[in-house]
Amino acid sequence: MIVSAQNGQEDYLRKVLGNLEKIESATYFVIEQTWEPGDTTALVNRRTFCIEYDHPGDTTIGARFVNFDGIDTTKAVFGYDGTIHAIAYHDIKKLEIDDFTTKPLPFRPLSSPFFNYTRNIIKYALETPDNITVEVEDDVVDWHIRIVINENEQVEFFGKACYLPANPYCWDPTSIYELWVSKANDLPYKVRREMSTNISMKECLDAQLNSASKEKFDLLSFFPKDYKIAKYGERKNVQHASKLLSKNAPDWTLKDAAGKSVSLSDIKSKALLIQLTGIGCGPCRASIPFLNKLRTEFSIDDLGLVAIETWKREGHALQNYINRYGIKYMLLGGTDEISKEYQTGGSVPVFFLLDENRIVRNVFDGYGEKVTDKEILNAINLLSLSSE
């Protein structure tokens, strides 16, 4: 059954919002999942434990929170106190602090805690003049709320609704939010967000409301005292991919979407173009037509072409990406070691052009349509390869 505005939809949303506004603190587990559009298996499946406090004094997010490891709930992973955002890198004993001055934006791009997030979505649906549709469906034990936002910009909820700047890699700005509300307490327990670029879902479990300690919230006290503190955006002492120029390309053996192992030494072409890429990266996706064109214009004997996915997506995600974007070249699943050995610092896309002896002749960092296309094509032609 669809509940329309005439028979109580708006009144029910106001009731749920009222319940959310009564939450001053909450502790709960969260199951977080993300997908690429068209994928049936989650790329990310993560369980965390959260302590959340309402914080009206913060006019950006409107909450303080700390997220912990879902198994070791004493190990803080990241948090926010209304002034700074802290992220722990436990493997290297480092705490990165972002005070939002390095890269000023009109909003703070943080993953808001569950009850703050759902409260702001419902408040927006009730108050916005934007072009939206809202449906409330009876799912027997739950109410299912679906909000479709038809604006020229994607709408994210970093606290209040935020309109994202125009993105050349977003072909459809429609934003869809779905919430599942328990009839037992008229509070949301699951939320799903869908954009043309990716899909995410959070499910709240074992919530304890208004029972957390109201002592002064000291974000840094949740993290180990001996961790080195670094400011977000500080120049890091890292190697750069350009240092591989005129050197042998690091060897690798990786798996394709079907699980078949492929080694650098298996590729016998006169030249080889390697792209380090990431599923979900806009510029990487924008480069696909150019790479497909190269695959068509040059024979496999003359030019090998391999993309290595370095964001550690599984085989099913690789196959979905191949099918969705019509990829005609080899796509392999990468590892952290690939990014280290190719000295990219995790950045994507980065292109490496190798000669017949697998010496790195050119490195292209980033992708700009036509400009990068021309640079790569000119470099290929300098290796005396002829297109078909």
Rank of each mutant, 00 (worst) to 15 (best):
269 S>E: 06
269 S>K: 08
270 K>L: 07
270 K>E: 13
271 A>G: 10
271 A>E: 09
271 A>V: 11
271 A>T: 08
271 A>I: 06
271 A>F: 06
271 A>M: 11
271 A>L: 11
271 A>S: 15
272 L>Y: 11
272 L>A: 13
273 L>I: 04
274 I>R: 01
274 I>Y: 01
275 Q>P: 02
276 L>F: 04
277 T>F: 11
278 G>S: 13
279 I>P: 02
279 I>W: 02
282 G>R: 05
282 G>F: 03
282 G>M: 06
283 P>D: 09
283 P>C: 12
283 P>A: 13
284 C>G: 03
284 C>I: 02
285 R>K: 14
286 A>I: 09
286 A>K: 11
287 S>W: 01
288 I>E: 04
288 I>F: 10
288 I>W: 06
289 P>N: 13
289 P>S: 10
290 F>V: 08
290 F>S: 08
290 F>R: 06
291 L>I: 13
292 N>W: 05
292 N>L: 09
292 N>E: 06
292 N>A: 05
293 K>V: 00
293 K>E: 13
293 K>Q: 14
293 K>I: 00
294 L>A: 12
294 L>Q: 08
294 L>H: 05
295 R>K: 15
295 R>D: 08
296 T>A: 09
296 T>G: 02
296 T>F: 04
296 T>V: 09
297 E>D: 15
297 E>W: 07
298 F>Q: 00
298 F>K: 00
300 I>R: 14
300 I>L: 14
300 I>Y: 12
301 D>Q: 15
301 D>L: 13
301 D>P: 00
301 D>I: 08
302 D>N: 15
302 D>S: 15
302 D>W: 01
302 D>G: 07
303 L>H: 11
303 L>D: 10
304 G>Q: 06
304 G>A: 09
304 G>S: 08
304 G>N: 08
305 L>C: 12
305 L>I: 13
305 L>A: 11
305 L>N: 07
306 V>W: 02
306 V>T: 03
306 V>E: 05
306 V>Q: 04
307 A>N: 06
307 A>W: 04
307 A>G: 12
307 A>L: 09
308 I>Y: 03
308 I>N: 06
308 I>C: 09
308 I>L: 10
308 I>T: 07
